[in-house]
Write a protein that binds this DNA or RNA. Structure first.
Length: 564
RNA sequence: CGGGGUGUGGCGCAGCUUGGUAGCGCGCUCGCUUUGGGAGCGAGAGGUCCCGGGUUCAAAUCCCGGCACCCCGACCA
């Protein structure tokens, strides 16, 4: 629709000096976003068109499962958050402020409190259930570290929906509806994606999935194996065994002067790091001390450890370690009277391990779990590449979380009094689910996944424009007149067309077109016009072909539709 | 919150070590030429050198204190 000479598309030849992520560089270079402050971005006209195309797809699919779009406020009374415990529980990410009467307010990072409050007064009977309510609303989160432009910002638009059901079975059904709607949304947006099992986290809950778009800038690590996909936070796999020296009759001391890291000890003893056991001392919520032991080449997974311990915990400090085990520096499990959790990847047979000796500059060699110390089992480590699932090696790749679905249960309805009367006239608690999608992340993920050296290559469905029409003719020339005419015809054919009729050279126009990344570029210039033809380039792959000028608009429309 | 880095016209940067009238490329304006891959020539406009204080005859430059932004990590419905 717009003529580029009249439009605001501030493209840049060079990316911002401090940009790291590809989508960050290209969003700025292509004139789609501009920065206002840390984690604060303005969507420029063309960028907002792409964003809103994603929004419209989400809207259509939410409506298709019976969702009802509404709008709840960003500014929310702190009172609601105090009632759910999240005024403190949400942490520093929650923007807090006061109104002119000094009443505490928050800027909503999400809307469970508000929507559940409505449900508590508006839903009274089992006849009122189920319901799915949603909105697109700006979310405010004071992120500790915003990064990569719109991938993690402090203010962003989110589609959040909430389901209300009579019981657990109803929730399961609403959850399934969302899962199917999400499948369609991400397919329609043209993303590469998959859904993974997710941590139910601090919110509690009865199940959760995350929708992941794999790309290098992704902040999540996803563990993949045939038939398996899970967030690293919750993934489990079988570790590869490591070669270990055989154990003697009892652990023997080895001098390790000045060595405090796994790497130092492993190198000095000429053993793989996996032949060592590292200690991770923690203190539980009730004050109990637990020593977690795992292979030296593995890392503790705090989420899985909390599940194993069935308690929140924190790392023990030096004083606590000293009180339980003696001087820190060489912590080990032998001869100490503390609860020990041993990671599943540590096997009892097949040789001895090296552990700390609880004395400075000393380790123990030939330590055998069970024989030399008592333990409980637990799967408390991060999966690593090379582990196997069902005999197949796993792959770990970064991905952007573009959506999630979450079975809340009754956590919010309980505290906010969202109940209904069942058929027997008895009061029941409403079962809830919540479901999020970030349109900006979808747009950024699409850029990450499909960009090439020339710039962005939008999936057809979410491109700012369908067609990028370039005329190389000056005002008054034949090619300019034909381009003007084709511009009208393309719009009449229902194609959103950006018309570059600027007084600029061909190189600049082509470079901008490829940077912006609309799926089809149409060029009208003297060279092909001599044969009565125009040039058409499909952005993805940059294949060019010519089409007869006669009937060009409908041929272009056919081509565009065929891109799928 | 720990570590590292950067603030100089719209964008990218030099100048700072060794204080002395603020520069380069791109972009922008005007004129002429040019028009299938970021064009040429000529003439211009545009800067509280992040902020505050200090030292000095003199500070973009040295000193002190702030602020902002970025990257890595921690953190993260």
């Amino acid at each position: 629709m717009p003529r580029l000479s009249e439009y605001l598309l501030p493209t840049e030849r060079e990316p911002p000096a401090d940009a790291e992520a590809l989508s960050h560089k290209l969003l700025v270079r292509a004139g789609l976003i501009r920065q206002v402050g840390a984690g604060l971005w303005t969507w420029m006209p063309a960028g907002w068109r792409a964003h809103q195309r994603v929004v419209q797809i989400v809207r259509e699919e939410m409506d298709a499962i019976g969702g009802m779009e509404m709008l709840m406020p960003i500014l929310q009374p702190a009172e609601l958050w105090k009632r759910t415990g999240r005024y403190e529980g949400f942490g520093d990410e929650l923007f807090k402020l006061q109104d002119r009467k000094q009443a505490d307010m928050v800027l909503g990072p999400t809307s469970e409190e508000v929507v559940t409050t409505h449900a508590s007064t508006l839903i009274r009977s089992y006849r009122d259930l189920p319901k799915i309510l949603y909105h697109f609303q700006t979310k405010e989160r004071d992120e500790p570290r915003p990064r990569a432009a719109v991938l993690r910002s402090r203010e962003f638009v989110m589609k959040d929906s909430y389901s209300f059901d009579r019981d657990r079975e109803g929730l399961d059904a609403s959850y399934e509806k969302h899962a199917r709607a999400y499948d369609r949304i991400f397919d329609r947006c043209g993303l590469e994606w998959y859904s993974v099992e997710a941590d139910v986290g601090a919110m509690g809950g009865f199940g959760a999935h995350e929708y992941m778009a794999p790309c290098p800038a992704g902040e999540n690590d996803v563990v993949l194996a045939p038939g398996y996909a899970a967030n690293l936070e919750v993934a489990s796999a079988v570790a590869q065994p490591v070669e270990r020296p055989s154990a003697g009759a009892a652990p023997e001391e080895v001098a390790t002067p000045g060595m405090s890291t796994i790497a130092q000890v492993a190198e000095a003893l000429e053993l793989p790091e996996g032949a060592l056991l590292k200690a991770y001392p923690v203190v539980l919520a009730d004050g109990a001390f637990v020593l977690v032991m795992l292979r030296g080449d593995h890392k503790v997974n705090d989420i899985k450890l909390a599940l194993t311990l069935k308690s929140q915990f924190r790392q023990a400090n030096a004083a606590e370690i000293e009180a339980q085990l003696g001087p820190p520096g060489s912590i080990g499990p032998v001869g100490v009277a503390v609860r020990i959790v041993l990671d599943d990847a540590v096997v009892a047979d097949g040789g001895g391990y090296v552990t700390g000796a609880n004395r400075p500059d000393l380790h123990l060699r030939g330590v055998v779990p069970g024989r030399d110390f008592a333990f409980e089992r637990g799967d408390v480590r991060n999966v690593v590449a090379g582990d196997t699932i069902g005999g197949q090696p796993v792959r770990i790749e970064p991905a952007i979380e573009v959506g999630n679905i979450f079975k809340l249960g009754t956590r919010y309805s309980d505290v906010l009094g969202a109940t209904y009367l069942d058929q027997a006239g008895a009061s029941q608690t409403i079962w809830m689910g919540c479901y999020g999608i970030g349109p900006a992340r979808i747009a950024a993920a699409a850029i990450e996944q499909f960009a090439d050296d020339s710039g962005i290559s939008w999936p057809r469905a979410i491109s700012p424009f369908d067609i990028h029409l370039v005329t190389l003719g000056k005002e008054g020339s034949e090619e300019r007149a034909l381009a003007d005419s084709l511009y009208e015809q393309l719009q009449a054919a229902g194609l959103d067309t950006l018309y570059d009729e600027r007084d600029a050279g061909p190189g600049e126009k082509f470079a901008d077109a490829e940077l912006l990344g609309c799926p089809v570029r149409v060029t009208i210039g003297r060279r092909t016009l001599q044969n009565g033809e125009i040039e058409v380039q499909v952005r993805r792959g940059q294949d060019s072909r010519t089409l007869p000028l006669e009937g060009a608009a409908s041929a272009i429309a056919d081509l565009w539709r065929a891109l799928g």
